[in-house]
Design a protein around this nucleic acid. Structure first.
Lengths: 195, 195, 195, 195
DNA sequence: TATGAATGAGCATTCATTCAT
DNA sequence: CATGAATGAATGCTCATTCAT
């Protein structure tokens, strides 16, 4: 029993550890500068063993991306607890600002991944990063819709783009305060939305 | 005379060709996925000869970045011909929107370069991409200042971040129309600025 | 069990083979003229695999040097079996003369390595070749001390230098007989030492 | 006239400068670590121009060796002014000791060159370094002959080998004082020679 | 002859992926 | 499943030598 169940648990655990390690290292070092060995080491898994969980490096990258997607789903589900759409969006902004130091240092995990993956998959039209962004945009759009805004989807694009823009700039300029000021602007914008 | 000058001109030309090729290929394929051979081939220069003009691959990357910086300077100088700051900013937005198809396919050259270089130079605080962004932000801030806006620098950050955000999203979603709609929003925003 | 131990043994064996191959080829071709491929080929190891055992070419060079150092230690230990210091030194000389053909063809392994490494590590003060020579000089000095000689260390320097000198000359002149005659001179010198 | 004579002089001068530069840099950096560009730069000659004076790198190396040979000839001619063979040999030793700092840092120019060239010309039986050593050995032998010594040639080998040995050791141990002590020993040896 | 530029072969090193046990 | 080891293709870079002018 310790065997069948235990090893399955161990396997799930290893896969999990590898995914988490990948998400972290890929964020910090970038996809191309990260070796399988880097990830294996951080996950404390022997290199040769990685391939029993992920066929290729791309698979690992995808897993890391999925991890970010899962993280996003969790966050959105958490935000959904608040019934007020405006508050939800405000909390989303707050979560962005909260991560300002990491963002200023390494950029937005999703955004930088999107940039790198775009170079990797020259013909990928319907990419998984795209899906992630779509999920987020859709959720944001839904909030704007509930707020009775016209063109909620466009507003959502603007909103999500604002995060990507301030993240990229704060990273390029190594200035976390950009996130603070831009975050305040977004919140003001939310508050000023005509009802 | 045609000789001595000719060869120098040829050399300058080759350097120029290599720089242009680098800028183009690095934009399309990304820094890490681009080999010196790729650049050499596009520039029609034998691989070994590249190193006569650029000591290292990093040098080539820097040259490509400089090319972008030069391009930006030219553009700003061109915009400066119009005395109206609001019109200047509007024209800048227009130039962004104009490039929407390339942006949707490969992202903003400067933005994607910023992301990649951040992973390459783990400790680079005062990077050259940073300088490029600073130049742009400063110019934009100056226009807002002339328009009598409070906090022109913050507005400039918002403005530049907007471009990066919409570029990234339109790239990730492979949707050039995002650039159109966001561009229009920016122009409306400019027009609505209180005087 | 044959397994786990077997692969470790195989690994040790491969490392050993690479070290031996390195020692041999580096002696014959010199450090700079020897490629990793040369060593790999002689050791019958795929080139890419070499780097699993040695991170860099320098590492391989160091390993070869260590092999020489080990060889020296063994030889000295063997000589130590004879209780008579004079006989020990005589046997050492004999071992030098024995290798005269190889020496005339390729020089003294340690001496030529010392020359080459001196050019490689421009600032290496306390080099490993230096250590090797120190070990030898110290051992020789100890013998002279036991023989009751004054300035045993100086005598040891003279003794060791004599080997390097005759090795270099016999190599440059491609004349192994130099080793014979100089060897005899050294032995006579030992015999004539005042007690 | 400034032309024909001047350019010939300039050519001779350039060749001379290249030879001197080669001798110096090859001694310091070693043959393999020295590039044509290194030599050209030190000689203040454009790289492409080097090949009008020396067809190949080997030619340059040979020229440097010839320079050392010329230097030796000059030195021996100078020593020949003293009619006393013993004094001549003593003065030769003194000249070796004088160069102790350079020797401790870079080795004996001829000796290190001999080692490196041996690796370069795998089949060179009658090498030019050999010739140089033969010249020296013959001259020294002649002095011993005049001193009425038996086996003057063997003594000469011993004498020259002593220099190579102490040079190599003082270089490997980075200790110029070895040259001093060994030099004194050689002089004592000369003085003690039976007449 | 003079010279900047061109050429191309060669080398150390990396790394994703596979294999043997 | 686990794991250390194997494999080989790819890449940045160097440099002696040659060429065009």
């Amino acid at each position: 029993m310790a065997n069948s169940n235990g090893s399955k648990a161990a396997a799930r655990d290893k896969r999990q550890r590898l995914t988490a390690a990948a998400a972290e290292v890929l964020h910090r070092q970038g996809v191309e500068r990260t070796t399988i060995a880097d990830i294996a080491q951080l996950a404390d898994v022997p290199v040769g063993n990685v391939y029993y969980y992920f066929k290729t490096k791309d698979d690992l990258v995808r897993a890391a991306l999925s991890a970010h997607a899962d993280h996003l789903s969790l966050k959105l589900a958490h935000l959904d607890r608040d019934p007020d759409p405006r508050a939800r969006l405000g909390a989303l902004v707050a979560s962005w600002v909260e991560r300002r130091d990491i963002t200023a240092r390494y950029g937005c995990p999703t955004g930088t991944l999107a940039v790198e993956l775009d170079k990797r998959e020259p013909d990928g039209i319907d990419t998984e990063v795209g899906q992630l962004f779509r999920t987020l945009v859709d959720w944001v759009a839904e909030q704007f819709r509930r707020l009775g805004q016209p063109d909620p989807h466009d507003l959502a694009i603007t909103f999500v783009a604002a995060n990507q823009g301030m993240s990229l700039l704060s990273n390029a300029l190594r200035d976390p305060t950009i996130m603070i000021r831009e975050g305040e602007r977004l919140r003001r914008w939310l508050d000023d939305l005509p009802t």
